[in-house]
Design a protein around this nucleic acid. Structure first.
Lengths: 334, 334
DNA sequence: GAATCCAGAGACAACGTTGTCTTGCAGTAG
DNA sequence: CTACTGCAAGACAACGTTGTCTCTGGATTC
């Protein structure tokens, strides 16, 4: 005694199974009187088509579901991207399966496989694994994949990236323009592609100005150790450039604790909520996660709709937002 | 040429279709040699079972997918809750379909229906619609639903709620204990159940102390109008209690603009990232969205596993976190 | 008036899988 | 040697739906 089926509806309306199918699918070749009877029976029984059976039988195997693999749905960057994807999907009557990867390659494979088995029409992936070759094995051929935030390796698909290298260079040039010479870079794990690009941008700008680089990698997202260590150097940096929003926030906390937040300049990569309300307000190179999500979703839907072309690389520009912390002048010594 | 089927595997391994089915499902009644041949063929062809067909045929209709309907996946509260649900689901090999409702009852109905048609094993809903009676029509009977953050009407299910009324009263009592008498409440739309509970808590505490209430409802999430208007009253409040994180942030901005952030006390309902780094740090009554998500997911999985009992109501306590803004003393006039 | 056409409606097979029944064959007991 | 048992493996139907084909009967055509 599960849900009513087409057969139940047919019996109740006194027509054949196929006639019900026609009415449900809005075919025009049904006598209006019969169609009305069918619709009445559908309403009476509360009939809903079984999507599994439909997908099984139909030759256009569309589930109107896409998969979205993100770093961590509770990170503001991922959340904004998620939301943009969902809006684009919703506008097309498509639903979104989402999963968090937490920098775990195994989880990326598992989730991609699970979504593939659920017959997602396409995937949007922010890659964590060093290689996406597994997709060729997991995915039904022809299922499009769009990569976002980080480039993929071993699998071809459209890729939506922020201008990480150029944005980082712009941030560092901004500090240089404000008179800084000793600018330290607080980096994210070099395993992460965007972290590497941003480091290249930092080096570009420093080399260009003939300045020596000074880099520290934070082990975790909470900057507990690196910032104080840097500032205790004999010739300490007068400005910091942080590679990522969590690191930026960690640096803000550390500077506060050291009471140096008004003396050491700071520019962060990636905007975050309330950056403008901190003291001093934090200058950032903002990414546009909503634009990235929109672009990725649109690219994916184009592919799903049969668009066949070479995979594209779509750049979403970053934007420097001066707010105060990045415009502090260098101080001699403290 | 779509994905290989069991039939293809059977032909390739030189056995019958049913034998492949047995091997794939790990039945023990297969000759080891045949089983090995089948497994080789599966690997060779890259065979993956078609989940739709399996679900169609099986009598235990489990898709190992649950639906999660949230206010807005990009809101930190929703995002943290989402993450907790995902972690619980992941631990059980279950996947999560998520949708944002944006306070739109129609969207709630649509998404619930869509997830039901995708044969979700259960639903977690943060209700937006005034009534959830539609669930009886949309859902297959027996599909459990757990409500979270807000109570439901017209449908029975476990409900996970924060202690909104008590938490709000605690916040207001905290301000009273610091000497405030004129305490204004910046409310959220009264359409929202939690907003009503929090208002009741505010009134409880004010009545208890014999103080007159003073309430303003913000039209949108950006507090542009209400805060300045309140503070321009002839006898302006010396403290604000804000009903929700976005309203709190709006109030912080408004107080900053008016240069009153060190003179008007503020307690907000709902914690938010960086509240501790603002000037002054913002005192809040924190909810625990992760605990709420965990509790909701656990309740749902218990139901899915056949737990039959009266629907429960689970309370997740709030916690007052004094940080500075709520401990400012009242000022006479400015 | 007979032949043709057409639209509407039903019969039937098929999608990919699993539940149940049947078959075949080896091993065992009488 | 026959009858029975047990077990592996295949045949077949069924899940709920849609694609294709066939049938019916009334309207149109010559």
């Amino acid at each position: 005694m599960g849900r009513p089926t087409m057969n139940d509806v047919a019996r109740s309306a006194g027509v054949s199974l196929k006639t019900v199918s026609r009415v449900v699918n809005g075919e025009r070749t049904v006598d209006p009187e019969l169609a009305a009877r069918v619709r009445a029976a559908v309403a009476l029984l509360g009939y809903r088509p079984n999507l599994g059976a439909t997908m099984l039988r139909r030759n256009d195997r569309r589930t109107r579901t896409i998969g979205l693999l993100l770093e961590d749905v509770s990170n503001p960057f991922s959340a904004a991207l998620h939301r943009a994807v969902e809006d684009e999907a919703h506008a097309r009557g498509v639903h979104v399966l989402t999963g968090s990867l937490d920098e775990d390659p195994a989880r990326e494979r598992d989730l991609a496989g699970a979504f593939a088995r659920r017959n997602a029409d396409g995937l949007i992936v922010a890659p964590t694994a060093p290689d996406q070759g597994y997709l060729a094995r997991e995915l039904q051929p022809g299922i499009p994949v769009v990569f976002v935030d980080r480039p993929a390796a071993g699998y071809r698909g459209d890729t939506v990236l922020a201008t990480n290298r150029a944005g980082a260079a712009e941030a560092v040039r901004h500090l240089i323009a404000h008179g800084h010479r000793r600018i330290a870079f607080l980096a994210d794990a070099p395993r992460i592609a965007t972290a590497r690009s941003r480091r290249l941008g930092y080096r570009d700008a420093m080399r260009e100005a003939g300045l020596p680089t000074c880099e520290a990698v934070e082990p975790g997202p909470d900057v507990q150790a690196a910032t104080p260590a840097l500032l205790r150097l004999p010739d300490p940096p007068t400005a910091l450039f942080t590679a990522q929003n969590l690191i930026t926030i960690g640096a803000v906390r550390a500077l506060r604790r050291l009471r140096l937040h008004r003396r050491v300049a700071l520019v962060g990569f990636d905007d975050f909520p309330l950056a403008d309300l901190l003291e001093p307000p934090v200058t950032v190179v903002a990414q546009d996660p909503a634009a990235m999500g929109r672009a990725a979703a649109r690219a994916l839907f184009e592919r799903i709709d049969g668009h066949e072309e070479e995979p594209r690389e779509i750049s979403i520009p970053t934007m420097l937002i001066p707010r105060g912390s990045g415009e502090l002048p260098p101080t001699g010594s403290w």
